[in-house]
Design a protein around this nucleic acid. Structure first.
Lengths: 197, 197
DNA sequence: TAATTTGGTAAATAATATTTATCAATTTTT
DNA sequence: AAAAATTGATAAATATTATTTACCAAATTA
């Protein structure tokens, strides 16, 4: 019996924490290594002991956020029956995440997709995992007859993610408030039944 | 009789052109001032004569692209009757833009939204203009009874933009091909009638 | 207890962005 | 038509930021 929990050294934790704190108020690009080191209370060199560069640190912060998100999603889906009900839940949970975890929303919606390294990061692997979960639910829905079989699953997934993300953009960028329940209700209704009268 | 065309000096044009060319292959962040100056065949200092910094140059390139896009959109909408028909056309035109103008797609989808200055740029003013055009069409559709009046127009707009953008992300990022006609047909069908059977 | 690893610092160096001084060619003013 | 001012551009200096290196003390392992 042996746990595989690797305890992180305090300096590393302080660096990760500083990054999170700074991203609350400022854009990734505007943060200097010196800013991060100062906020963390460590020397600049230490950052390079634990991370390849500033971006690698960003990806690490995103990975931690996404880990929590996926745990919550798995839990949220427990005991839910039917593809459409699962979809409803996923829409609600995703909006809730973006609305209540602004740093998470900003990183994933605004900060990472512009670099090649992101697509080789652990964080992106988690994003793909979530993608697969959603795609499987969509396929389940098509198989069960709940979802139309004339639309390619990948497009349905793009519509769901795209609509959610775009609806949370103003929250991420301008800090505009989002009512999770209202947004989830409207977006679900819109995606399920369309905009045509 | 006097035209207000301000002719740009050759150096400025070369700089803008170099930026466009470099963005074809590389991410904005990876471009140095020295890269841009070398590709343009000018000295680094000249870039600061015409642009505040690298990002200002990026916004200028986007503005030029968006100018063309808006001209095309206005032309595409000429003579089209009915809100849903206009929506169909806008969906098709937007996808066509993203699919056939990859630098444009990459700038707007991946590179600009992470900086505060973007939201004060001329380029963003054009984006908002397009937003208003779409919103007006949606309101027209609601008024005419073509579009359901139970969904807030802003959410409908977010769904349209979000779905289009997400569906073009892989094209922008990984250079995956997009069939404009297929994508437009599927996305239109999905948004108009929903995913539920 | 000697050797090694770990967590960390401080300072040097490298890469990049930005500013400044300068200049020749053109345009405007008188 | 000459003097003054502006324009388009350069080259080099400077400032900022990222990154590497050499080193050290405490803790752990052999």
């Amino acid at each position: 019996m042996k746990t595989s929990i690797t305890i992180n050294p305090p300096g590393k934790l302080k660096i990760i924490d500083a990054m999170r704190t700074l991203l609350e108020e400022r854009t990734f690009e505007s943060l200097t290594i010196s800013d991060i080191a100062f906020t963390a209370g460590v020397t600049e060199g230490l950052i390079y002991k634990y991370f390849k560069d500033k971006r690698d640190l960003l990806h690490h912060v995103l990975k931690e956020h996404y880990d929590h998100f996926l745990v919550q999603i798995e839990r949220d889906l427990q005991g839910i029956d039917g593809a459409l009900n699962k979809l409803r839940k996923i829409i609600w949970s995703s909006i809730e995440r973006y609305a209540n975890h602004r740093v998470f929303a900003r990183i994933i919606l605004l900060e990472v997709r512009n670099s090649e390294e992101y697509f080789h990061s652990e964080a992106y692997a988690l994003v793909r995992q979530f993608n697969r979960i959603l795609l499987d639910i969509i396929k389940e829905g098509i198989a069960s007859g709940e979802i139309r079989d004339t639309l390619p699953p990948a497009y349905i997934r793009n519509a769901i993610f795209g609509t959610i993300e775009h609806s949370c953009l103003n929250r991420a960028i301008f800090n505009e408030p989002v009512s999770t329940n209202d947004a989830a209700r409207i977006i679900t209704e819109l995606l399920l039944n369309g905009i045509k009268r």
